[in-house]
Design a protein around this nucleic acid. Structure first.
Lengths: 220, 220
DNA sequence: CAGCATCCGCTTTGATACTG
DNA sequence: CAGTATCAAAGCGGATGCTG
């Protein structure tokens, strides 16, 4: 919460969102939508509970989120991003693009939650055939099942299961990440433990765009 | 330096550049180019010298910058960004875009250095007449004079003075920021203490692009 | 249970002084 | 110039307890 006291746009931004955990809280709210305190805590393994409470207060004061007592049947307080909070999405995308290259060598002991894929999925995937029928792909790779859906050329994600998906994608997170970011193809991904059921055409419609641009091979 | 231990691109990125001061060090190297230790310290008022040394070590280990002993006449070590370090520019731009809105109400006691404008200038300004003759605008607003130059449609900045600039822009930092981001026009800026010498056409060629998109009026 | 607040030990940071 | 050394203060992580 300590300010850099510099009249500089970057420094001013970091004054607000530069503290530890802050941007990950925004990540949670961005990917899961309005959330309860407990759900936020579950999505942020390792955070101290008092720290989460502190951050939520600070972020509310800064106008990034607002808390609201939801009526029954929810009957609890929900935290939701304000407009200003949603405007942080490009920041998260930029960091995620840069940090995504570090996922190639997964560190031992890292935790993983499926919904953390939502942001990169929306960023990397495009429907190559917007005119085609809507498709639904069931993703099973972490703690909770997720769905990748297309509608009018846009790709959306949400947690849940579909009764009759067009394809089912299942495998370890590293392989799913490598596949969805375009680092490996379906055949290579199969060799890495991925199973794919369904018409390959379905997946082909979701080609990762500009995989080289988003994951440049850096020499150093 | 403590890792979030999450298999998530955003968390992995923040593991490396999420520590206090880290992104501001990158800002310095991005705007000033290869720099000496002392110049970095001067560009980061408030940083403890041991902390700067620590960060530089960590960033070098992370492959973001490299130090090099420059031969005479420099005869000192220079710190320069690697390719991987330069790839952080979109992150800084995203944060700067978001944080720029906080510059509207300058806090009392903030420090200011002219070269902090370099990043937003490159981001916001475009030469509307790339075919025209190259132009040079002398900017005098902070501790050191700067130059805004156009070449082949691109806008570049550097510190220094020109013998015969096409225009001279002088005034308090807040006014310069408001003008260059398109929040106010030349006439309004004059009322706020800005002086402009030279052909107004020269400045008009550097219209800030999509000022609304980069500085949306947020309700909350 | 959801939503915190309190306490405590450890780590990080900030300010200053000092050195090759 | 380019750091290291020292130390107090602040921030963080982990455990636990309290309240509706």
């Amino acid at each position: 919460v300590r300010s850099y006291r510099q009249y500089c746009a970057v420094a001013k931004g970091l004054d607000v969102v530069g503290d530890r955990w802050t941007l990950l809280i925004v990540r949670e709210l961005l990917t899961r939508g309005p959330s309860r305190y407990t759900d936020l805590r579950n999505g942020l393994p390792g955070i101290a509970t008092n720290l989460l409470a502190d951050r939520l207060r600070e972020l509310e004061r800064a106008g990034i989120l607002e808390s609201e007592v939801a009526p029954p049947p929810i009957a609890t307080t929900l935290f939701r991003l304000t407009r200003r909070g949603h405007e942080l999405e490009p920041v998260l995308h930029a960091i995620g693009r840069w940090g995504g290259q570090l996922l190639a060598q997964p560190a031992e002991g890292d935790t993983f939650q499926t919904h953390w894929l939502a942001l990169p999925l929306r960023l990397h995937l495009r429907d190559q055939n917007p005119e085609g029928p809507p498709i639904t792909i069931q993703l099973r790779t972490g703690d909770e099942p997720m769905l990748i859906e297309t509608a009018d050329g846009a790709v959306t994600t949400r947690t849940g299961t579909a009764a009759d998906p067009d394809a089912v994608l299942e495998g370890p997170p590293e392989t799913v990440v490598a596949l969805l970011t375009g680092q490996v193809g379906l055949t290579d991904a199969r060799a890495r433990g991925l199973t794919y059921q369904g018409d390959p055409e379905v997946f082909r419609r979701l080609q990762p765009r500009s995989s080289l641009a988003s994951f440049p091979r850096t020499a150093k």
